Simulated assay, not measured.
Amino acid sequence: MRHGLRIAFFGSSLVSASWNGAVTYYRGLIRALHARGHRVTFYEPEVHGRQEHRDLADPAWARVVVYSVRDTDMLGDCLEEAWGSDVVVKASGVGAFDALLEAQVLELRRSGTQVVFWDVDAPATLERVAKDAGDPFRALIPRYDHVLTNGGGAPVVNAYRELGARRCMPIYNALDPDTHHPVPPEARFAADLSFLGNRLSDREARVEDFFLKAATLLPRARMLLGGSGWEDRALPGNVRRLGHVSTQDHNALNCSARAVLNVHRDSMARFGFSPATRVFEAAGAGACLITDAFEGVEQFLEPGREVLVARSGEEVAEHVQRLTPKEAERVGKAALRRVLAEHTYAHRAEQVEAELGFRLSAAVVAPGGM
């Protein structure tokens, strides 16, 4: 039997969800890769107070190395340690030394080593590069063996190929059924519609349209708004702020509202084919999901049967107004069946192996795996 890959992964954080939208993706995918026999070392910077707000102890399914942003020698030590790995990954949005890492990981290539740029926010990266012909990352793209993305479909793949990428493959967000699953509802999260998302400049207008407008149109409906940054935002009287919601409470939040809303950021909506992790978290909990419309939604969930799609706040309000508990349950159960059958991180890990040209002769389940 072949041994698994040794993977060095430079990303934002594996142990903290604080201002770290990629954390669910990282955890689900790396845990699934570990379960298939691969060994991942995750290198993350000590920034944004993440180490003070950890919500995960060092896991059995990955080795975590934290380096100081005040000491470049520590980063150099991490790069030296990564030398000789089978796969070296530089993710987008690490939060420190991004430009340096994008160049330095390419120096780790040797015979038998593949170097990957893993873009967890491809629409934003591509829009940034398109606006600045002098962006240093532009010249590095053709040097990577692979560009992997967590969304974007054909528009992102074509855009990266036009920039000279050798290979580009979406490895979409997905579900880890061990962490996101149905649980009993909790009274503190009871609502007609809940939305969870940090306040971001490139999503706020869409949140206002799809969530706050719907709340205004349904003054008797109970609405919950979770996420950081909304403290000073004026809200309709029927919207209750939750503030930051711990990852441990996501299942209860998703299972306690009649419907859960997903709202994409501007760039993700423009590129399409970019379902957020929240889509799969909600579906994995068996929640009835309402999402803002995006191109490619039917690739993941069937509109009308497994997800409700809205093109405006008025349509969100219409969905909520006519949604009965029985219908909400039907949609949620259909979504859960679909994501378990096609959209788990185990499925995504197999796609990663295929893209890297790796095949195991038999299934490998490592200790502490899924």
Rank of each mutant, 00 (worst) to 15 (best):
G4Q: 01
G4A: 03
R6E: 00
G11M: 03
L14P: 00
V15P: 02
V15K: 04
V15G: 01
S16T: 09
S16W: 03
S18M: 13
A22H: 03
G28Q: 01
R36F: 11
H38P: 09
R39Y: 12
F42N: 02
G49C: 10
E52Y: 13
H53R: 15
A62S: 07
V64C: 09
M74R: 14
L75K: 09
L75T: 01
S85C: 14
V87E: 01
F97S: 08
E102L: 11
E102Q: 12
V105F: 13
T113S: 09
W118V: 03
A130T: 08
P136N: 00
I141N: 05
R143K: 14
D145K: 04
L148F: 15
G153P: 10
R161K: 09
R166E: 10
R167P: 06
P170D: 05
T179V: 14
V183I: 06
P184G: 08
P185W: 03
A187D: 13
F189L: 11
A190Q: 13
A190Y: 02
L193R: 01
G197M: 02
S201E: 14
V207E: 00
L212P: 01
T216Y: 06
T216C: 04
R220H: 12
A221F: 07
R222G: 07
R240V: 14
C255K: 00
A259C: 11
A269S: 13
F273M: 11
A283W: 11
A283C: 09
G284V: 06
A293W: 14
E295Y: 14
G296Q: 15
V297Y: 12
F300Y: 15
V309G: 00
V316E: 00
A317S: 01
H319D: 05
V320N: 00
L323H: 00
R330V: 03
K333A: 14
K333I: 14
L336E: 15
A349W: 11
E350M: 12
V352Q: 05
G357H: 06
F358I: 04
L360T: 07
L360Y: 04
S361Y: 07
S361W: 10
A362L: 12
P367A: 08
P367L: 10
G369C: 08
G369D: 02
M370C: 10
